[in-house]
Design a protein around this nucleic acid. Structure first.
Lengths: 124, 124, 124, 124
DNA sequence: GTGGTCTAGACCACA
DNA sequence: GTGGTCTAGACCACA
């Protein structure tokens, strides 16, 4: 359920965090649903349990999941914080957009790109 | 002429590279114009000369500037490579846009954001 | 008769131990009174029998209860050990109090807090 | 500057966090002052760098310190959050106090204990 | 089985 | 030198 990009410069634990988050946001993971154990996910992904743990700890600290030692990790009740990720994501978009001007990239180009991205998704 | 964000996670040498690049792209720096010396820029910015050097080496490797031993560094003739940065930037935009879907961020929202970003710039 | 906090970081078996102990100390459980069976308490609390067992074993080891094979577990004769818990509790208080100084928490604040805690209890 | 209790059940990284926090709170560490590097502190304390790192990451996430990769870790500008630790500590006190009643521990006993703790400190 | 802590140490990018 | 990521794996308490 998680697809890693080992060559990416985005740390593996961040990739896990992002994808779990995305799956929570889109409803693929529901509240109180149990997540894969740190060990089993580590084996599945061919990585070290500590790396999965790091992602889980981050997600727990952010309130998206909760872990019960000896039992497992579970999706939290949605508590409005989901919108926090939205804001985070939108901030990223703004950040990238704000650096386009000096390269003569026009609004029209961006618009076309956005259209394209969303058309691709629809057809998927 | 360079504004650093010391707390940002973007490496300082990358920030320098980006901003020099932007200034070349927008014509603020013209071909054969001399760039500030490594040492003087380092002092200006309060950083290590190695860091400035790293940015310059990168820019030279990419063909945007050239260095004359004992004299200094200069902006290269524009040689089509400028479009490379454009592509780079557009790829970044695509990358970010592609991760928005699971959070229920709509095309309309993005469009509005783009409008906003460009309106701000016009008035600047 | 036992209220668990599943999300607490205090282990469940400790919570059980503490609450049984408290009920013995305050007389809610009298000597030779039978305790709920391991299995029935486990069902009541929705937890694993092993967890209840662990609490009982601990309490037995400490001399607060005794078990009769095939019959059940019973509260021991009060044998001075009750004061052991008192000491334990007081040690906890000291431990916590000893770490307050660097945060500028004054004696007066603590005093007020103590007053408050005890006033609440009286009115209960 | 940090005294570890290797036998305590409080994790080492938490002990480090607490003590750094205490030193910030009492002014022993001032804003923008550099903290010991993860490696050097690890050697000093005879522990693994990762363990120190864990403490620093936690402190950074809480906003008490900031780390600049390649440079070091520094105390943050005090931003009101210091009071958060105070609240945290007071909550701990309340928690412990609330569990004293069934053992017949009186207000007077606690008061005496508090007096004692603060008298010890004065004379130190 | 589960999560949580920790060691020992490699490797990376950066200053 | 610095922080940051990651592996490989031990050991613990708990369910």
């Amino acid at each position: 359920m998680i697809a890693l990009n080992q060559t990416s410069r985005t740390p593996i634990y961040q990739q896990i965090r992002e994808q779990v988050l995305a799956q929570i946001a889109c409803g693929l993971l529901s509240p109180h649903q149990q997540l894969p154990g740190v060990r089993s996910m580590a084996i599945d992904l061919g990585i070290n349990p500590n790396t999965v743990m790091k992602a889980y700890v981050e997600l727990e600290r952010e309130g998206f999941i909760y872990s019960v030692a000896g039992k497992g990790s579970y999706v939290s009740e949605p508590n409005g914080d989901v919108s926090v990720i939205r804001q985070e994501k939108l901030a990223e978009v703004k950040e990238v957009l704000s650096k386009l001007r000096p390269y003569g990239i026009t609004k029209e180009e961006i618009m076309k790109l956005v259209e394209m991205m969303y058309r691709e998704e629809e057809t998927r």
